[in-house]
Amino acid sequence: MTKDQSLARSLTRRRALLAGAAAVGAAGTAGWLASVAGEEPIRPAAPAAGPHASRALKPSAHRLQPLTGYGPPRAAPRRTLIRRKPFLRVSGRGRAMVLTFDDGPDARYTPYILDTLREYDVRAMFFVCGEMVAENKDLVARMADEGHVVGNHTWSHPLLTRLSRRRIRAEMERTCDIVEEAYGERPAWFRAPYGAWNRATFQLGADLGMEPLAWTVDTLDWTTPGTRTIVDRVEDGAAPGVVVLSHDAGGDRTQSVLALRAYLPQLLDSGYFVTVPERKYT
């Protein structure tokens, strides 16, 4: 072996040793960083058989997730079924009833209704009109804070059966948007103004993820029949699963406010559980 050949072999061996030391050092540094971060150290994998085959390092799901979206697949949201008629009652345990208030929120009457519901620790449903929400977002935010359910009652309370599909959708969708802004969630329930339903209202409501809810007992409070008459209608119609319709806007609702203060404690004393419905997808 010549002197030059000996020198070349020595340099080649030295490079190999340096490369090996660098690899070990890098692996050790990676292990230390992982241990500081609270993860398992990454250990170098042993080479597999074959001239170029090697076992890939096991990826860290935590580190890859922000880039590749690794993780359990998300379940696709279920679409709301298209109903042919609205719900008139709700199912629940025992003597459960639902109180609903339409057309608001109204700064003159809705706060008093919310005060009464809070006093008796009761949750209710408010089917709101978008144009009223635009003026009273603080009341819708309060409804969210106090656990009430806010439903869609269109933007301007039109008779939907006389509108085109495009207009109906605009009334519904615009209200969904402003409810989400004020309440924090898009409405899961819809009620047609005047109880006027047709095929388009059911289809478009379902497209927007809403179930249709009507009522069992109509207090007819919008006719201002007198506080005592409203109270009697609620008490006479009380039964498990009943949905009561009242109003907190759309006119003088003083009688509605006073009637609630009278019949609510009586319902509770009679053993009724006033609640809000759970959303059903089937």
Rank of each mutant, 00 (worst) to 15 (best):
residue 93 R to F: 09
residue 95 R to H: 10
residue 96 A to N: 11
residue 96 A to Y: 02
residue 97 M to C: 08
residue 98 V to N: 06
residue 99 L to C: 00
residue 100 T to H: 08
residue 102 D to C: 06
residue 102 D to N: 07
residue 102 D to E: 07
residue 103 D to N: 01
residue 103 D to R: 02
residue 103 D to K: 00
residue 105 P to E: 08
residue 107 A to C: 10
residue 108 R to D: 14
residue 108 R to M: 12
residue 108 R to A: 14
residue 109 Y to N: 05
residue 109 Y to P: 02
residue 110 T to P: 09
residue 112 Y to F: 12
residue 116 T to Y: 07
residue 118 R to G: 11
residue 119 E to L: 15
residue 120 Y to W: 13
residue 121 D to C: 02
residue 123 R to A: 15
residue 123 R to Y: 04
residue 124 A to P: 09
residue 125 M to G: 05
residue 126 F to W: 01
residue 126 F to E: 00
residue 127 F to V: 00
residue 128 V to H: 02
residue 128 V to Y: 01
residue 129 C to G: 10
residue 135 E to F: 06
residue 136 N to H: 15
residue 137 K to V: 06
residue 137 K to Y: 01
residue 139 L to Y: 04
residue 139 L to A: 01
residue 141 A to D: 06
residue 142 R to A: 11
residue 143 M to Y: 09
residue 143 M to Q: 15
residue 143 M to G: 04
residue 144 A to Q: 14
residue 145 D to A: 14
residue 146 E to L: 11
residue 147 G to I: 07
residue 152 N to I: 03
residue 153 H to N: 04
residue 154 T to P: 08
residue 155 W to M: 13
residue 155 W to F: 13
residue 155 W to S: 08
residue 156 S to V: 09
residue 156 S to T: 15
residue 158 P to M: 12
residue 158 P to A: 09
residue 159 L to K: 13
residue 159 L to P: 00
residue 160 L to I: 06
residue 160 L to N: 11
residue 162 R to L: 14
residue 163 L to R: 15
residue 164 S to F: 07
residue 164 S to Q: 03
residue 165 R to N: 12
residue 165 R to D: 13
residue 168 I to A: 05
residue 169 R to Q: 12
residue 169 R to V: 03
residue 170 A to Y: 15
residue 173 E to G: 09
residue 174 R to W: 04
residue 176 C to T: 13
residue 177 D to S: 14
residue 177 D to R: 13
residue 182 A to W: 10
residue 182 A to V: 08
residue 183 Y to T: 07
residue 183 Y to K: 12
residue 184 G to H: 07
residue 186 R to C: 01
residue 187 P to A: 09
residue 188 A to Y: 06
residue 189 W to I: 02
residue 192 A to Y: 04
residue 192 A to T: 00
residue 195 G to M: 01
residue 196 A to V: 00
residue 198 N to P: 05
residue 204 L to I: 15
residue 204 L to A: 01
residue 205 G to K: 04
residue 207 D to K: 13
residue 207 D to H: 05
